[in-house]
Design a protein around this nucleic acid. Sequence first.
RNA 1: GGCGGUGUAGUCCAACGGCAGAGACAAGCGACUUAAAAUCGCUCCAGUGUGGGUUCGAGUCCCACCACCGCUACCA
Length: 854
Amino acid sequence: MSLTRKHYPFPEFESRWQKYWLESNAFRAANPGDPDFRPEANKYFVLDMFPYPSGDGLHVGHVEGYTATDILARYHRLRGDNVLHPMGWDAFGLPAEQYAIKTGQHPRVTTQRNIDNFRTQLQSLGFSYDWSREISTTDPGYFRWTQWIFLQLYGAWFNPATCKAEPISTYEGNDPDSVRLAFVSDKLVNWCPELGTVLANEEVVEGKSEVGGFPVVRRPMRQWMLRITAYTERLIADLDGLDWPESIKLLQRNWIGRSEGAEVRFGLEGFDESITVFTTRPDTLFGATYLVLAPEHPLVETITAADQTEAVTSYKNSCSAKSDMERTDLAKEKTGVPLGVSAINPVNGEMIPVWIADYVLTGYGTGAIMAVPAHDERDHEFAVTFSLPIREVIRPDEPRNEKNQGCFSGEGTAINSPTIEGLRTPEAKHKMIAWLNEEGFGKGAITYKLRDWLFSRQRYWGEPFPIVWENGSHRPLAAEELPVEPPEMDDFKPTGTAEPPLSKASEWVSYSETARRELNTMPQWAGSCWYYLRFCDPKNNNRFIGEEVEQYWMGSNSRPGGVDLYVGGTEHAVLHLLYARFWHKVLFDLGHLTTPEPFQRLVNQGMILGDDGQKMSKSRGNVVNPDEVVAEYGADALRLYEMFMGPLEHGKPWSMTGVEGVYRFLARVWRMAMTENQEGNWVLSEDLTEQELTNAQRRVLHATIKKVTQDIELLSFNTAISQMMIFTNEFTNAKPRPLDALRLFLPLLSPFAPHLVEEIWSKLAVKHEGFKGLASQSAWPAWNEEFLVVNELTYAVQINGKVRGHLTVPTSADHESVEKAAFADASLAPFLEGKEVKKVIVVPARLVNIVVAV
RNA sequence: GGCGGUGUAGUCCAACGGCAGAGACAAGCGACUUAAAAUCGCUCCAGUGUGGGUUCGAGUCCCACCACCGCUACCA
């Protein structure tokens, strides 16, 4: 639609108010110790997932989440709370560096430009951030503390006795480097040749890099790791106390992937060594007909029979040459090679063959399994491929049918298993584990899918490690030496080898005559692991966060989480949220924080789709640019539309005509207060007067206050807006219009459409009482239940669940009189004639249901 | 394949287990206007993806299936 004339003059006032709010520090949050700090006020910390400032600029998806939190922030301010609502930039990372390499510009330059663009865009939407707290992860004053936190991890270990992190000084063993929470490992890592860097498991999607989609291969490299696996139990257990969507909790639990089972030791014929396998089904031990090792299993070298060496070596080579992607592609067909050696099943002394196969993963469990082809689908497939024996040891509860034919992996009753014959699966497991313990062949065990966090990258645009190497060993820099800034470099391209680009800055590399700096940098996740803490105290040069400030903003009477509300997309459900929880717990254990969890309440906004119902993408050409919507309809209309589209958590398609709808609503609100004079100027409406509201008006007004208040708390913005539309429909045509209605209504609308309300508020203030100061600093109104009461209620009268009539009774009528009135209703007589009444149900204020015999 | 979410008028979406409709979009009619736009008013439209079950009563709870979306993928 092209607008010859705007329905209300938003271009004239939106940017004016944005400027005014900014210059008057209208949304500044006071810290304890500040002169204007109000100790009696409740704190409310409402946080957005800060954006990666990409060159594409702000997306309508950002606007959705940011509007939701802005509504909450503004609402809580009107309720008198001390609201912390900050914004910053997650600005280190691969895309900036790749763009820099492509264009030949330094990433600092492009990053700064993108940040400036994002800030302008956010400010043009009227978000009430406290901009004095703006932070960027690339700022040395910020990453100094990211490095400091790394030193905390480096200087700590997880004490299994206390089940928490402690300073490494409390460790009494002789190899502290083997227990640090930040440690060096030479294990297999995900190496992406195209990006020239290693990646965390979480950054590898279907065998390809999450960024760019390039193939990833596994190779051994010396890397920094963080011991997140020490926290698996607490990361699972502490989810219980959080107000997070169950689906996100489940995602995290599944990602951590706790499995209870047993480790079982199989002896090897002709060797002193034995093979330990992990199984979740020790009750199927009698059904194990072969063992499988991961191709990379260290025992393979030792135990392979001479006549199999060639086949085994060639199989191993073919596996390591395959990228993860190829391994996944070939998943349909099982491959493997026998080692020519037999293992001894401890339960019955049976000799079973040992194989290697790439369907067994080296990083999970013990890297070895006992195969029970009758009761595991993968083992079954493998056994069929290689004609290995299949022996049933579980009888399903239901007879065999199409569904559980071939391979039954459920629970049932143990058969063909002398020591546990006839036992149900849970008891059978239990008894088998007890037996393994007694005989020394194994024990109960728990494993997790979660691996330690690969924490180093071969990139330029990231935080350098505060570590130097001397005589082949690492040592930390002193806290006073931070920040370690990356060197100025013109050529920061990947070297094409495993050598990081920082190796090219030879001066920077040499720390002293004998010491070299660590050349890797931290992954992008590092900066976002703790930014919510820095927002509390962004300029503190002595600590990553001041103690008193931390206790105030992150403290929470008896709840585990500090941040009151955290809103962002589901894409961070496992990675960012798990990493941040981990760091938080370490800092908590070390006494730096007061709560064990960072985020008390989490809400994931749904994805906004294009108007074709598809995901927005440049190639589909269905991307909506927020700047264009703001230009045409204004910031308030964009904000309101995104909140009106549907429930915050749901995905929903964009509709430009829908924007027009809310835009027209805002114009109606404008015209409640303003009218156009003959010269075509907007002036205050003469219809506004000081007068009592009618009962009906008062009822609508208070119903609106109630509904909007409750819906904001529930984040049900779409229904809150619909109630405000009802209010507007009621009052637009009222002549004269009572000013009291606007006094109470405008604050309700102000979190949603702050510019419009601020403008009307200031216009009204010129002539009328009760519109002092800024609308965004006024007070949230309260509703009065008394005004909601009506004199009469209409009941639906049902006979056997079918509506047969209606009944109007005084509100004060009790059950009995309602029931009586229903039977007195002549129009129901035909339905009741000669029938026996069996039951009468009266639902207060709703209906009467008369149940009669048929 | 596994897990999670969602299916309600032409469309987006509302409905503590209680009369399927709050709001909006689109469509149509009317008022205003020389006319149009804008504005205002009115009207139209579904029995809730399918099949069972629980209940006095089911869009809502339970079971099975179907469709779409998201996440995940040999984790023993």
